[in-house]
């Protein structure tokens, strides 16, 4: 084989024969010499992670301790009493456990699926419409809700849903329909909360998919058009499959958070009404309410750890599944 090809094999750019790949397996130093420059690109990020993420991980003992204050943070951590899983028990033994798990996971699964469908559809729609100025305007406006804090969204929701709000006064009353007391009836809230989650978040996802579409090789479409494919066929057979890696990675990442929720949404929009808890209480709001009685950080730390561990297992599972669909898109 030629020198150039040999180099390319060594660089992993093309597959060589078995004999050639044996040479690559020479180990650590060989790898460093070959790709030192590339590995050096990891350094800034790695330093950041070591300082801001790994160093604080000493705090992973907090869920297992009853924190009492000593002279320094380190002695506080080490001298505090070890209580094993005690801090988890208020959560595990809770009479509401089933409800909050069901709500948390339920909302997340629906939102992940719905989010994917809506974001991709809207991104494609924006990409396709002929007037670029309109597309730009629509996109900008759709991004606006993202800037409002959930507290404000809570006020806005109230303006629509209250007994004197727009829905009751402006829609139901003129049609002679009986007024709905949204803030005392749990059954409407899954729809309300899902609506707001996407109202606020869609703009975000759309941008990612638009960028992905923009990065696609246009010659593929032109070739397909020459072969007689309609635009619809082009979208279905080229655009969407090309978006698969992005869809997969975003889903995997979302699944890692399947046991957590956007606290702001679930706490503020239902205005913390107790009677709605059947459908609005999630793990994060539950823990927040428990903290009201003690201000004990070990509690939230314990539940947070629980959420992370479960999320981790979910990701490993979904990652494995993703590997079966498209090995290139695996997270790790």
């Amino acid at each position: 084989m030629s020198k150039a090809t040999g180099e390319m094999v060594a660089n992993g750019l093309i597959q060589g024969t078995k004999a050639e790949s044996k040479q690559r397996k020479k180990g650590f130093f060989f790898e460093m010499r070959r790709h030192g420059a590339l590995y050096s690109m990891f350094i800034p990020g790695a330093i950041f992670l070591l300082i801001f993420a790994y160093l604080p991980m000493v705090g992973l003992v907090i869920p297992f301790k009853y924190i009492t204050y000593s002279n320094s943070f380190w002695s506080t951590l080490f001298d505090s009493e070890w209580v094993g899983f005690y801090n988890f028990e208020f959560f595990w033994d809770s009479p509401d456990l089933y409800r909050i798990m069901r709500n948390t996971i339920g909302y997340n699964v629906i939102n992940i699926v719905l989010g994917l469908v809506i974001a991709v559809s809207v991104a494609i729609a924006l990409n396709e419409i002929r007037n670029r100025k309109s597309a730009k305007t629509y996109q900008t406006i759709m991004f606006m809700p993202y800037f409002l804090s959930w507290v404000i969204v809570g006020y806005l929701a109230y303006a629509f849903l209250s007994p004197n709000g727009f829905i009751n006064m402006g829609i139901l009353k003129p049609f002679g329909i009986e007024e709905i007391s949204f803030y005392t009836d749990p059954k409407y809230w899954p729809f309300i909360l899902i609506f707001f989650a996407h109202w606020k978040g869609t703009g975000y996802g759309v941008i990612i998919y638009l960028a992905a579409i923009a990065g696609q090789d246009q010659s593929l479409y032109e070739a397909a058009a020459i072969d007689g494919a309609s635009r619809g066929q082009q979208i279905r057979k080229i655009m969407i499959p090309l978006l698969k890696p992005m869809m997969i990675i975003l889903t995997i990442l979302a699944v890692g958070g399947i046991f957590s929720s956007d606290f702001g949404l679930f706490y503020n929009v239902p205005l913390n009404q107790g009677v709605l808890k059947e459908t609005t209480d999630v793990i994060n709001t539950y823990v927040y309410n428990a903290l009201m009685s003690s201000g004990d950080i070990s509690l939230s730390a314990a539940v947070g750890l629980f959420q992370s561990v479960l999320g981790f297992f979910m990701v490993v599972g979904v990652n494995w599944i993703a590997g079966k669909i498209d090995p290139e898109s695996k997270l790790f």
């Binding site: 790695a46 604080p56 000493v58 705090g59 907090i62 890692g256 750890l305 790790f332």
Partner: peptide, 20 residues
């Protein structure tokens, strides 16, 4: 990849981060 992803899921919590 894992070095990064691990930090996205697990953390020591707000207080040790604050300390750092």
């Amino acid at each position: 990849t894992f070095f990064l992803y691990f930090t996205m899921l697990f953390g020591g919590g707000m207080v040790p981060w604050y300390l750092v």
